[in-house]
Design a protein around this nucleic acid. Structure first.
Lengths: 334, 334
DNA sequence: GTAGCTTGGTAAAGCGGTTTACTTGACCGC
DNA sequence: GCGGTCAAGTAAACCGCTTTACCAAGCTAC
């Protein structure tokens, strides 16, 4: 393959001149430019990225660390990030950690090893300081969706507390008094925030908390938790869940137990994945502005890579999507 | 940051010795090894990947080109590929082409430019030879899910024809005689194969084809096609669709038109995405072995990167998942 | 008429590894 | 005691681009 030197020789110039011209760091007379273009065409020259990267130390790629890429919420977010990245010539390298802290640390190592220029980090694990330590001294990282306490890094979240509060309030307004909560793992920031929102709404109404279960934001955990919770007496008349996937798991079990939704059980989700409106019954859920989030995430990281000052904390608003999985409890006359 | 030379100096060796030791190309006495390890620890040395890549010409990353990463089918596939790749120390760079042939070509350029060592290519566009031309001379590419006629490359598909045939046969057995078809774009291999399966099953039963619409494997197209098809007289009693997303679009419109599924209209999908069983009614669909596909895809590409001979064509079996979106047509006594 | 600026370049030193080809000394068999 | 082999390395080229520092010629201003 032709190299820059080959092109320079063919154009009767030094490699320096060609390199600088190609990178726009010098303005050459039209005649010289034409000679370079002609040489490039004739030799079918394409710059060797690997060499350029070694020289500049940049890879023009960013990493996106997600708990699980096959969850539609993360997939949508990844898609949004990818669009923005492609617009700026950046490649996106995706890691799906599947709740394994070792894989989260490994992704950070890849940044240190210059596999990528920057990282968007969505952790899905409770923080014990390990991840914060691994992030020590790094600047080109954006904490997305979930917090990692400690590092002085830009953060982009949604308003989890307000979302859960709105969902819980709606159930209270419908007349529910015995409202349960099923969510992800304690110690994960969004879990704590959603839990706080749930508790706040109950406190406002003078209600005490119902049964709460914490595990994973996954369908399987929704099933496990629901099996126990729906067998209890008294059974909650409504459940605020921390994710649409959990809600789906709860639905499955509720149906297995002979319950009808929403007559016997009201249910709210969180995320508003692309299927929330389609399942049976259509799920009342808290919508995250995922496309906007992906775009802002990339813009922020890019600005950070370019050494610009970026906001330390951005919180995006969420909206409650009311559908048919919530209704007044059976027997209640309003 | 410490370099290999720093380590060599600290260990009283040449960089060559250290490099070769680190890459397992030389066996050194234990005492020498210990000196190297000590120097690495003391200096907190980590090899510069960029330099290694320039030297070796390998990036230890593969590209995954999908039509749209936010479609659960592709997201699941991506997740499976990522698991296999991570096991072998490969990073996965994902591109979502959104049906834009220019972005498909761009992804191939990234391979030529050594952004990645190999590519898994899922095209979503009809082939006019452009992509085949762009692939000319490349060897480290796997054609996944969709064919691109021409290049001598390994291919991994599912049995699309058998899948559509099975779905259509089931509808025929249920008593349907007026069966329509809604699918992706003509010229896309899976579309053609699924169409062929649909036609074969009808021909076997001595039935003629119903109305057919071809557009995109997307929800929106399902809606557009259904609006027209369900307004026709006579209205088909069943529709074989080319993707679950199309089926979802059809469902939405059918319901808007006051139809009840499956009483008024039977519907089959294709893919068996993670939500197919949850929507209302649960969708009868053709299941693709997506996890297996991702793993085989990576293994094949890796073998190919290592210069091994790999199968030119692998076709994975599909299975019909019968759920509640299909039933005998109303009024039929069997 | 000369100091200083602009235009249009160049030489050479990196970036940090890998790899080929070669050396040196010890040992081994006969 | 001599050729051959093996162990334990090394020197230097190379991967291909970027960038710093520098230069020569021509023009301008005073």
């Amino acid at each position: 393959m032709a190299t820059l030197s080959d092109v320079a020789r063919a154009a009767g110039l030094s490699p320096t001149a060609v390199s600088r011209h190609l990178n726009g760091r010098i303005t050459l007379p039209a005649e010289t430019r034409a000679r370079i273009e002609a040489a490039i065409d004739a030799l079918d020259y394409r710059p060797n990225l690997l060499a350029r990267r070694l020289s500049t130390g940049r890879t023009e790629a960013i990493g996106l660390v997600t708990p699980e890429i096959d969850n539609p919420f993360f997939a949508e977010l990844a898609a949004a990030v990818e669009v923005a990245a492609a617009d700026h010539g950046y490649a996106v390298s995706i890691t799906s950690t599947r709740g394994d802290p070792a894989r989260e640390t490994a992704a950070i190592e890849r940044l240190r090893d210059r596999h990528v220029d920057g990282l968007m980090l969505m952790t899905g694990t409770p923080q014990d300081g390990t991840l914060a330590a691994a992030l020590e001294g790094l600047t080109n990282v954006l904490l997305l969706d979930e917090d990692i306490p400690g590092p002085d890094l830009p953060r982009l979240f949604v308003d989890n507390t307000a979302g859960a509060r709105a969902a819980t309030r709606q159930l209270i307004e419908l007349g529910h008094r015995h409202i349960a909560h099923i969510s992800g793992q304690r110690g994960v920031s969004s879990v704590e925030q959603r839990y706080a929102g749930y508790l706040e709404a109950l406190a406002e109404a003078g209600l005490s908390a119902g049964p709460c279960a914490f595990g994973r934001y996954r369908r399987e955990f929704g099933e496990v938790a629901a099996r126990e919770m729906l067998a209890a007496d008294p059974r909650p008349t409504a459940i605020v869940t921390g994710s649409d996937e959990i809600a789906i798991g709860v639905m499955t079990v509720a149906r297995q137990n002979g319950l009808t939704l929403p007559a016997d059980l009201s249910l709210t989700g969180f995320d508003d994945i692309l299927y929330a409106a389609l399942i049976d019954p259509p799920l009342t859920t808290v919508r995250q502005p995922v496309a906007e989030m992906g775009r802002i995430a990339f813009d922020t990281l890019l600005a950070s890579l370019n050494g610009e000052e970026v906001p330390r904390l951005t919180i995006l608003p969420v909206t409650l999507q009311i559908r048919n999985s919530t209704a007044s409890p059976k027997g209640l006359v309003r």
